[in-house]
Deep mutational scan, measured.
Amino acid sequence: EESQDIKALQKELEQFAKLLKQKRITLGYTQADVGLTLGVLFGKVFSQTTICRFEALQLSFKNMCKLRPLLQKWVEEAD
């Protein structure tokens, strides 16, 4: 059922947002740094506010889903 899928996805997004924040802090990056690095990787800079709202799960579900693969890549590249 679709609502189950969405619930599962939301849970996954929550966990990912936590992971992103932990990783960012561990590596000593600011939210603005992450936004700028996305610009380098994908040619589209994201504001500190956007990263902040992603981490706080304050973006729309659709936006969270759109941003996630980009931030996933950041997490992979950041090591």
Rank of each mutant, 00 (worst) to 15 (best):
I51E: 03
L27I: 11
E14D: 03
Q10N: 10
G28K: 03
L67K: 00
L27G: 05
F42Q: 00
E77T: 10
L67N: 15
M64D: 01
E76V: 05
K66H: 14
L38C: 11
A32R: 13
V45M: 10
K23V: 00
Y29D: 05
P69E: 02
Q58C: 00
M64P: 03
M64E: 01
Q4N: 08
V34W: 02
A78C: 06
T37F: 15
E77M: 12
T30D: 02
C52M: 15
S60M: 02
L36M: 14
L36P: 03
T49W: 08
K7F: 08
K66R: 12
T30A: 02
Q4V: 11
T37D: 15
V34Q: 08
F42M: 03
A56Q: 13
L19G: 11
Q4L: 11
D79N: 07
A78E: 11
E76A: 10
E55W: 03
K11C: 06
G39L: 00
F61Q: 10
E77W: 14
L20V: 11
I51N: 03
F46N: 05
V45I: 02
L13A: 03
G43S: 02
S60Q: 05
T49G: 08
Q10H: 07
L20F: 15
T50R: 01
F42Y: 11
Q10S: 10
L70G: 03
K18E: 05
E77R: 10
L59E: 13
L71V: 01
W74V: 08
L71T: 08
K66W: 07
K66T: 09
T30M: 03
V75M: 07
L41C: 01
Y29H: 14
L13Q: 02
I51K: 11
Q31E: 15
Q31T: 08
S3C: 03
K21C: 03
Q22L: 00
L71F: 03
Q4E: 10
K66E: 13
K7S: 11
L67W: 00
T49H: 13
E2D: 06
N63V: 07
D5E: 06
A17R: 01
A32V: 01
P69R: 02
Q31L: 10
K21M: 02
K11V: 08
V75E: 06
T37P: 02
Y29E: 06
L67A: 03
Q10A: 09
L27H: 05
L70Q: 14
F61P: 14
Q22V: 07
L67M: 11
G35K: 07
Q10E: 06
L9T: 09
S47T: 09
L36N: 14
C52Q: 15
G43M: 02
L36S: 13
Q10F: 13
T50Q: 05
E55T: 01
Q31P: 14
L70T: 07
T49M: 07
L13M: 12
C65V: 09
F46R: 05
V40W: 09
V45W: 09
Q15N: 12
L13H: 09
F42N: 09
C65Y: 05
K66P: 04
Q15C: 08
E2K: 09
W74F: 10
L38P: 02
R53S: 04
F61E: 01
Q10V: 10
Q58V: 04
Q58R: 07
V45D: 07
E76F: 09
C52N: 14
F54T: 13
K11G: 09
Q48V: 10
K18M: 13
E14W: 06
K7N: 12
V45L: 06
A78P: 03
T37C: 01
F16W: 06
G28H: 15
Q4W: 10
I6R: 14
F16K: 06
E55S: 05
E55Y: 04
L27N: 05
F46M: 12
F46W: 05
Q4M: 10
I51G: 08
D79Q: 10
A78Q: 13
Q31M: 02
K73T: 10
L59M: 11
L71S: 00
I51V: 04
I51A: 00
L59P: 07
E76K: 10
L13Y: 03
R68E: 05
F61I: 14
A78H: 11
R24T: 03
Q4D: 12
K66S: 12
K62E: 12
L57H: 15
